[in-house]
Design a protein around this nucleic acid. Structure first.
Length: 1092
RNA sequence: GGGCCUGUAGCUCAGGUGGUUAGAGCGCAACACUGAUAAUGUUGAGGUCCGUGGUUCGAGUCCACGCAGGCCCA
């Protein structure tokens, strides 16, 4: 029943296990077996099947999988449902590229219906590759019935959520400043600005202008701008509240009239070369070519003092509905450039709009009679509206490729100069984004958008986040927490096509708005519209109705006053789709109901750190806003997978790792194990295939060899599994291994419970290589192959078997395949993944034994090191090792193990006061530090001056008196045995041992015997004998070995399985073998007939 | 520009609350073992703990300022 499997072949075995899992429905069984038990809720963050999966997906999914497998083994019911994220810009861009389209072509060259159909087809393109990866890597998730974000039921749930936001007053429409291309007539996404070549170096006029104080007509505030065309839209000036400003008496450089100006002190030197202060304060001192201006500083004041002061606008083409044109404080004001006073045009800058809103400054533009903002002073084609009389109809940049284009910026500068309001004009070279399609500079332009008022939820978001367990905590507190504390409203609108349409209908005048929360509601609303004659049919009557564009766009609803309502044309941010997943995946609240919703919140999610402001955030916002709850109680964050040099993997660099090839070469388990054990999940992993291969050798190889060892001898001896004997009846080494196994179990359990699988994997590795293979198996080999089938032998089998079974369970979450293989071949029932995760049994622990064995291993290492120094080979027995008498208590029971391991006859315990020991006294820094403080180094120096005699006296007295302090030995002073003169001596970490390297004739002869046995074993092997074959042995050796070794005949025969041993005085036919470097010997081996 | 993370041996990483001479694995070298053998084991070499200041009797560890790399956001 015990089967050796030969050298490690993980990929091959994994495929067999996969087939077995499939045939036996192991995954489904492992889940359903726990039905009725408490649930452990896991949310799968939906990937997009629009691209192929990479190695980083294997990383994230390994973490998800291992936690779910562990919790299942713990007895929780852990259903896992796959999902697909299907909407969004990446899909659209890939389709645009394939079809050779631009955004402007959609709805013109191609219908929205055809375009969206192409998106729908493209988005699942690699689904089968993903499914294959999922299966091959052993990621257990229900693939049969995934949630898909483009399905109508999913969309209906999202609509319901949006309506809930709407009804709470958390969904509103407002302007946002977006990059906009007047030449293309379209808004640009951040992505389009990030395209290579979008940012170009351009030369713009940069002018410093004077805003005249309303209170003091000869006082001006100096502000600097590189976009003079926005000056007619100026609404405010911003200063830094903490910055120092100065009021300067000087001259208008062009009109040469005396003026006073205010600017930041830090900007002074940029405008007033220092020499100006000593020039006479007369117009004659002005030199425009060198920029020389006479000036005098009249006053210094903080920015704060300027806040609230009012000024006259440069232009007054329109009147704002409320008060504008005053000084405000803003935190983005910089002293690096300009005057430290920033011109604010809320219609053309995102920061400007934000600051203006905060200070209740109205944007400058056109308003209707009710005070509703209609449009900015520049229209969507990029030219001034007629109200800007001086420049009406002029393009603010050359958007039409007009060869006679005259710069508006220039003209505005001239205009201001003529009015004595231009203080300086320069040219400024900087990087500015351009539209990738038209090559024209973008405009930052107000665009209408729908927002979620997340800022109103800020406190609740922060408070709820504090209840989430973040692994690691720093991301929850720092990256995520800081972000929440400064959260701004969430712009939900995307002017795209392939996404969940906003379910909002509106009259063109904006008087009536209606948000739809379900298909039934929409159907009813359409019926109303039909009765009003606005619709002639009800598309919701069709069971296959597709709630995407363009079909929803065709629906017209009726307002209470009978006027038509049209759908707001945007689709929503795709992040809302995935954030809605806890509800929409179960078609809440239509198919399932309740508050809180069922299967909510999640106990656990895990994704990459790049999701902090993605999925982690949108899940959190929706749950907090609508259910006043967290969406997940725990989140394990994983880092990136970089290449071996720490570079990000990208197709461009060609350093992308193909996960399939990897698993084909090394196996999924090896890949998973490597990713988990290499570094904590939240650190970036530098992926190095060489190290993965190493992991196969150094962990799986050793573990597998241990299994092979067991299977080989269990097979030979026909071992029948039996219960573990009572620990008290077992050999110490067995009890030690059992104790270590329980210790490991506790460690691994704690690591999994702490969501730190790296620690679990590392603990298992250490146990397998150092405790199990290097120590237990190596020291006990003889017990497995010795002749008698006695209780000791069966105990060894039982202990090793027990340990391997336990290992299979402990490693199952991380390496599900090999764990299953072990489980199966160790004769266990069912699947290891259906088993209950083992509970550590403290009664089997013996910590004193663990510690003692640890010291024995270190002593063995020291003795090996000494043997090496002495040049005496291990085969040569030595008489004794010397250790301090204090070791006796823990060492004596284990002495036999140590003696065998290093081939010694006896241990001699030295009296602590023996003259063979030399002592050293050292301060115990930890205890004496607080007591003595700065006197400590002095004490250390003093202790070094003590003679051996004085130290022995201190030891006998038990304490040392120094400068009035009584310092007890042990507590305050550490004793260290420093040397054993005359012996080969070694010490490390407080352990000391000496080796007696004198070889007596008896020992020498025994060494010869060992040497001889060694050669006979080699000869056996050369003869191709099996390890159990019996032989007839004939030997011929020269003297003195011939005589001396005959007394070892019995041992030699036993060790070599010789039925007969003949010492031949005459040479044999076989070829001579070098013996002990100088002589030769001859060995003749004949296989003995097997007796029945 | 802001927030966060990381920096320890050639490589990958450990190093609670500050405490004696900073550790492990791999790789490398030498050796041993030869009944785990396409294995196994032992030993050894290898360090400016990113830098500079500071706090302290004492700093890889705490503080400040930098440098380098990374992620997210402007």
């Amino acid at each position: 029943m015990w089967q050796t499997l030969g050298p490690l072949r993980l990929p091959e075995w994994e495929k067999r296990i996969l087939a077995r899992w499939k045939a036996e429905n192991t995954f489904q069984r492992s889940v359903s077996r726990r039905k009725g038990r408490p649930s452990y809720i896991f949310y799968e963050g939906p990937p997009s099947a629009n691209g192929k999966p990479g190695i980083h997906h294997v990383f994230a999914r390994t973490l998800k999988d291992l936690v779910c497998r562990y919790q299942t083994m713990r007895g929780f019911y852990v259903p896992r449902r796959a999902g697909w994220d299907t909407h969004g810009l990446p899909v659209e861009l890939s389709v645009e590229k394939e079809l050779g389209l631009t955004k402007a072509d959609i709805g013109t060259k191609i219908s929205i219906a055809d375009y969206n159909a192409a998106c729908r087809a493209a988005v699942m393109r690699y689904k089968s590759v993903w499914d294959e990866l999922t299966e091959r890597m052993g990621y257990w998730v229900e693939l049969e019935n995934p949630y898909i974000t483009f399905e109508p039921a999913y969309i209906e749930s999202v609509w319901w959520l949006l309506k809930a936001f709407y009804e709470k007053g958390l969904l509103y429409k407002d302007y946002t400043i977006q990059p906009y291309s007047p030449a293309a007539g379209t808004a640009l996404s951040q992505h389009e600005l990030n395209l290579p070549g979008a940012y170009r170096s351009v030369r713009d006029p940069s002018i410093t202008v004077q805003f005249r104080s309303e209170e003091e007509p000869d006082l001006y505030f100096l502000a600097w701008t590189t976009t003079p065309w926005t000056l007619p839209s100026n609404a405010a000036l911003a200063v830094g509240a903490e910055f120092v400003y100065v009021e300067v008496e000087t001259f208008q450089p062009y009109t040469r009239t005396p003026v006073r100006v205010i600017l930041a002190e830090a900007a002074l030197a940029r405008y007033f070369p220092a020499e100006g202060e000593s020039l006479p304060l007369t117009p004659e001192a002005i030199d425009l070519r060198t920029g020389r201006l006479p000036y005098r500083i009249r006053e210094r004041l903080l920015g704060q003092k300027l806040v609230g002061r009012r000024y006259e606008p440069l232009f007054r083409y329109v009147e704002p509905p409320t008060e504008a044109w005053r000084i405000i404080a803003a935190d983005f004001v910089s002293l690096e450039e300009g005057t430290g006073i920033v011109h604010i045009a809320p219609t053309f800058g995102a920061d400007d709009l934000k600051a203006a809103r905060k200070e209740k400054i109205p944007p400058i533009g056109l308003y209707d009679e009710k005070g509703h903002f209609l449009s900015p002073l520049v229209d969507k084609e990029g030219k001034f509206v007629p109200q800007v009389t001086d420049f009406a109809g002029r393009y603010v940049k050359n958007y039409t490729d007009d060869p006679n284009y005259k710069s508006v910026d220039e003209d505005i500068s001239q205009h201001l100069r003529a009015r004595g309001l231009l203080f300086r004009k320069e040219t400024y070279e900087h990087n500015y984004p351009h539209c990738w399609r038209t090559d024209k500079p973008v405009l930052y332009y107000p665009v209408e958008a729908w927002f979620i008022r997340t800022s109103a939820l800020r406190d609740r978001l922060v408070a709820l986040n504090r209840t989430i367990a973040w692994y690691p905590p720093a991301i929850g507190e720092g990256r995520f927490g800081n972000w929440l504390e400064n959260v701004e409203d969430w712009n939900l609108s995307r002017s795209r096509f392939w996404g969940i349409p906003l379910p909002i209908w509106r009259t063109p005048d904006g008087r009536y708005t209606r948000c739809i929360g379900s298909f039934a509601e929409l159907r009813e609303a359409i019926e109303e519209a039909r009765r009003a004659g606005l619709m002639d049919r009800n598309p919701l009557g069709n069971p296959d109705f597709d709630p995407h564009r363009p079909y929803v766009d065709e629906i017209i609803l009726v307002a209470p006053d009978g006027s038509p309502m049209y759908r707001e044309p945007d689709v929503i941010d795709v992040w809302f789709d995935s954030g809605a997943m806890p509800y929409a995946q179960q078609h809440y609240p239509f198919t399932v109901r309740g508050n809180p919703p069922p299967n909510f919140p999640a106990d656990f999610i895990a994704e990459g750190v790049d999701q902090t402001r993605g999925w982690f955030y949108t899940l959190h916002v929706i749950a907090a806003a609508l259910f006043d709850s967290v969406a997940y109680k725990r989140v394990l964050v994983n880092g990136l997978v970089l290449d071996k040099d720490g570079n990000k993997m990208s197709k461009r660099l060609g350093n992308v790792v193909d996960p399939f090839a990897l698993m084909e070469r090394y196996g999924a388990d090896a890949t998973r194990w490597y990713l988990v054990s290499n570094a904590p999940p939240w650190e970036n992993v530098r992926f190095d295939e060489k190290r993965l291969a190493e992991k196969v050798r150094t962990f799986f190889g050793i573990l597998h060899n241990t299994y092979e060892f067991f299977a080989l001898y269990a097979g030979i001896d026909g071992y029948v599994p039996r219960p573990l004997p009572e620990p008290s009846t077992l050999a110490l080494i067995d009890r030690w291994l059992l104790s270590e196994t329980e210790k490991l179990t506790a460690e691994v359990e704690a690591a999994y419970e702490g969501y730190f699988p790296t620690q679990a994997a590392r603990a298992i590795e250490t146990f397998v290589t150092e405790k199990l293979s290097t120590w237990y198996v190596r020291l006990n080999r003889r017990r497995f192959w010795k002749g008698e089938k006695d209780a000791d032998k069966w105990a060894a089998f039982a202990v090793l078997h027990h340990t391997l079974v336990r290992l299979a369970q402990l490693m199952a979450p991380i390496a599900p395949f090999y764990a299953e293989l072990l489980w199966e071949h160790l004769g266990q029932e069912g699947s290891v993944h259906e088993s209950d995760f083992p509970q550590a049994d403290p009664t089997r622990r013996d910590e004193a034994l663990e510690e003692a064995m640890d010291k024995v291993r270190r002593l063995a290492s020291l003795l090996h090191s000494l043997r090496k120094q002495s040049g005496v080979r291990v085969r040569q027995p030595l008489a004794q090792a010397l250790v301090p008498a204090s070791y006796r208590l823990w060492l004596e029971p284990l002495a036999e193990l140590l003696l065998t391991e290093v081939n010694l006859k006896t241990l001699t315990y030295l009296d602590d006061h023996s003259e063979a020991v030399v002592y050293e006294l050292r301060p115990n820094y930890r205890t004496l530090g607080p007591q003595l403080g700065s006197r400590l180094p002095e004490l250390a120096r003093f202790l070094r001056t003590l003679s051996q005699m004085e130290i022995v006296q201190v030891l006998q007295r038990g304490s040392l008196t120094w400068e009035g302090e009584t310092l007890p030995v042990g507590e305050a002073l550490e004793v260290r045995a420093q040397a054993l003169p005359g012996w080969l001596y070694a010490s490390e970490g407080g352990l000391a041992v000496a080796l007696d390297t004198r070889i007596t004739p008896e020992l020498e002869q025994e060494g010869w015997a060992r040497e001889l046995i060694h050669h006979i074993q080699l000869a056996r092997k050369e003869a191709g004998l099996a390890v159990t074959d019996r032989i007839h042995l004939t030997l011929h050796l020269p003297e003195p070995y011939f005589s001396a070794l005959q007394s070892f005949s019995r041992v030699i025969a036993e060790e070599t399985l010789a039925e007969t041993l003949h010492w031949s005085p005459t040479p044999l036919q076989t070829s001579p073998i070098p013996f002990l470097d100088t002589e030769t010997l001859q060995i003749s081996i004949e296989k003995a007939y097997e007796h029945a």
